[in-house]
Amino acid sequence: MSSAHKKVIVRRFTSETLPGYLPLSGFVRNRSIDLLDLSGRVIPLGLNDIKYVCYVREFNLNDTANPERLTRRTFLAKPRTEGLWLRLTFRSGDLLEGLAPIDITLTDDLIHDAGIQLTPPDVRSNTQRIFVPRTSITELQLLAVITSPSRRKPLPASSVPSLQEDLFTNLIPPNTRPN
């Protein structure tokens, strides 16, 4: 686990937002998180109260309605980046789409049934990554599996014709050549 803490804004179901710091992974313990707030205090938050956690570039504390600046919640077209294109429905009824990684990091928090990490639809916005607790999701849809274009795989060495056998046949006298 990385000891570095990143800037986050925690959105609760009460529409309250809490700015603070969390590590990128391994921060869920006993169905809660310990948010390090801006004054240096640790605030325990239960996963049942959290709608999502946004990893942000800036806190934007002057914007009380949308400090995470998560303006686009769905993709305008098929994403170009690799990943699982997911659509989540929250307990409050609103939707969020994102890309989940197609590697072992997908299972990091799912092992403990804690939640899922997503890349938001607009990566140029203030929000770089989103953690959604399992308890805030009522429906999860897999829209597509986005992969890179397939490349032609090299043929195995056994199926490639070898020129090595015929390379020195002219140097061996004809009556001593193997058949």
Results as ranks from 00 to 15, higher is better:
residue 101 P to N: 13
residue 130 I to E: 05
residue 100 A to H: 01
residue 148 S to V: 03
residue 98 G to H: 08
residue 104 I to M: 15
residue 151 R to Y: 05
residue 115 G to I: 06
residue 146 I to Q: 07
residue 123 V to W: 04
residue 115 G to Y: 04
residue 107 T to K: 12
residue 127 T to Y: 09
residue 150 S to I: 10
residue 155 L to Y: 14
residue 134 R to L: 10
residue 151 R to Q: 13
residue 155 L to E: 15
residue 120 P to I: 08
residue 92 S to T: 13
residue 94 D to W: 09
residue 133 P to L: 02
residue 117 Q to H: 10
residue 133 P to R: 08
residue 97 E to L: 07
residue 146 I to W: 00
residue 139 E to C: 07
residue 148 S to G: 06
residue 116 I to R: 07
residue 97 E to V: 08
residue 134 R to K: 10
residue 105 T to F: 07
residue 127 T to V: 12
residue 132 V to C: 03
residue 99 L to F: 00
residue 112 H to V: 04
residue 97 E to K: 10
residue 139 E to W: 05
residue 149 P to L: 05
residue 113 D to V: 12
residue 137 I to G: 00
residue 125 S to N: 09
residue 122 D to H: 09
residue 133 P to V: 06
residue 153 K to P: 04
residue 128 Q to K: 12
residue 151 R to D: 07
residue 93 G to K: 01
residue 128 Q to D: 07
residue 125 S to C: 07
residue 114 A to M: 05
residue 117 Q to K: 08
residue 100 A to T: 00
residue 116 I to E: 02
residue 117 Q to V: 08
residue 115 G to Q: 03
residue 95 L to Q: 11
residue 154 P to R: 03
residue 132 V to Y: 03
residue 114 A to Q: 04
residue 104 I to D: 15
residue 116 I to L: 13
residue 151 R to F: 02
residue 97 E to A: 07
residue 124 R to T: 11
residue 140 L to C: 11
residue 114 A to F: 10
residue 95 L to S: 10
residue 149 P to R: 04
residue 127 T to P: 00
residue 145 V to S: 14
residue 151 R to W: 01
residue 126 N to F: 11
residue 106 L to H: 04
residue 91 R to L: 14
residue 119 T to M: 13
residue 104 I to Q: 15
residue 149 P to E: 07
residue 95 L to V: 14
residue 106 L to T: 06
residue 147 T to G: 13
residue 136 S to Q: 03
